[in-house]
């Protein structure tokens, strides 16, 4: 099953910028940009759960 990234739509619905999201979740702007554009190939465990890694 293909994984679809709808981050841009969610950001638009919540009227939130990528910078705001980056500050709230602790993921760098560059990484969020890769995720948003659908270029991401994989996600590290440390990104998914930064507190435990």
């Amino acid at each position: 099953m293909a994984i679809r990234v709808t981050l841009d739509r969610i950001l638009l619905e919540r009227r939130m910028s990528l910078t705001d999201l980056s500050e709230r979740v602790g993921v760098t702007l560059a990484n969020l940009s890769i995720l948003k554009t659908g270029k991401a190939k994989a996600i590290r465990f440390s990104t998914l759960n930064p507190a435990n890694c």
Partner: peptide, 8 residues
């Protein structure tokens, strides 16, 4: 390398 660069 490309995959590593696109791993977030």
């Amino acid at each position: 390398k490309e995959e590593q660069e696109l791993t977030i």
